[in-house]
């Protein structure tokens, strides 16, 4: 049986968490909604759906300094910035299902085959408190992948009127349940929760009408369309701005640069996000193997629906619809996929 929390006690609960944890929650900065570190819980905004910026920058920032180097006494001295990354425990509140699923995908890239210690340090100590959406955004299509409640979370909130129904998904989550704020939920509350989630998912589904659950089948279908004329058409539209890559919660490509002083005797190594839509992304000493724009557009779609399936058995798209939302040329990933599986 789950528990529930009265809506007017949530703020107190967050304040209580903030005493021990670093708290992240949805805020609005310069007109852009994102999930940021909270100084004052009154800054938290209540959105009925996901934020514009995903969780990705919290664990994998756009620009990250690795270390500083300096030539000294005939050798090179290196100061690693990894120890400076705090071990502090953090709680991320108000995350939506698409973002939780996305971070699980990102974990596969960053922690599975190749381990990124900078990412691990931030990710390991993060507790996730998610929340069901009240209604979808124009571009949302999470139901195509299985709905808005993810498989794994620590706590999961669902609006059931005067209360939030709270599902407990892990030991870490369970420890946060304090009698001061939470009360036992009844069977009726649980039914309300189920009805609530169903009604929102039905709303999304009515609009989406796509079902990609059968991964094997659809991955083959999409893979077989590599020579389709659709790529030519999208290649003409796309302006290679890279916005879809940067906004995507699972895109993880980066470039590593050394920024030195004028004579190269000291400097810093930094990692900066990169985008597969850019001309020089696939440029090598021999050739540029994705010189044509249509090949780059195809690559991104394939790197969401084909290659990750081959490597990890999952899609790297969770239906958040952010790329469709930001694309200046109006390329809608959901519409593209729908055409591909027809």
């Amino acid at each position: 049986m789950g528990v529930k929390i009265a809506k007017n006690r949530v703020n107190e609960f967050l304040k209580y968490l903030k005493e021990e944890y670093i708290l992240y929650a949805p805020v609005e900065e310069n007109g852009v909604s994102k999930i940021s570190k909270i100084e004052d819980t009154s800054d938290i905004i209540n959105l009925p759906y996901r934020t514009q910026i995903s969780l990705k920058p919290i664990f994998f920032p756009p620009e990250q300094k690795f270390f500083r180097f300096e030539k000294k006494n005939g050798g090179v001295e290196i100061e690693d910035y990894l120890p400076q990354e705090g071990d502090d425990k953090s709680i991320i509140f108000g995350v939506r299902g698409c973002d939780v699923n996305a971070i699980e995908v990102l974990d596969k890239y960053m922690l599975d085959e190749f381990e990124d210690p900078y990412y691990r340090k931030r990710r390991e100590n993060a507790i996730i408190i998610g929340i069901s959406c009240d209604y979808p955004k124009e571009s949302c299509f999470c139901t195509a992948f299985g709905g808005m409640v993810p498989e794994r979370y620590d706590l999961w909130f669902t609006d059931i009127g005067p209360h939030f129904y709270v599902d407990i998904g892990s030991k870490r989550g369970e420890k946060l349940i304090d009698d001061k704020f939470f009360e036992e939920a009844s069977e009726e509350d649980e039914m309300r929760k189920i009805r609530r989630i169903n009604s929102v998912e039905t709303k999304i589904n009515r609009k989406v009408k796509t079902n990609l659950h059968d991964i094997k089948k659809y991955y083959h279908k999409i893979k077989n369309r590599a020579d389709d004329s659709i790529w030519e058409e999208l290649g003409r539209k796309c302006v290679s701005c890279g916005k879809c890559n940067f906004i995507c919660p699972t895109c993880h490509c980066f470039d590593v640069k050394d920024m030195t002083n004028i004579d190269g005797s000291a400097g810093e190594r930094i990692r900066v996000w990169d985008s597969c839509h850019l001309y020089d992304y696939a440029k090598t000493s021999a050739e540029n193997f994705r010189e044509e724009r249509k090949a780059r557009v195809r690559y991104r779609i394939y790197d969401k629906f084909v290659f990750p399936v081959m490597r990890y058995g999952v899609y790297a798209c969770t239906g958040c619809g952010r790329c469709s939302e930001v694309c200046p040329a109006g390329i809608d990933i959901h519409a593209v996929v729908r055409r591909l599986i027809k």
């Binding site: 910026i53 302006v239 701005c241 890279g242 916005k243 940067f246 996000w273 985008s275 001309y279």
Partner: peptide, 12 residues
Amino acid sequence: EYSVCVECSLRE
């Protein structure tokens, strides 16, 4: 070999 958009979106 990339546009201003790249650096703009990196700054959210």
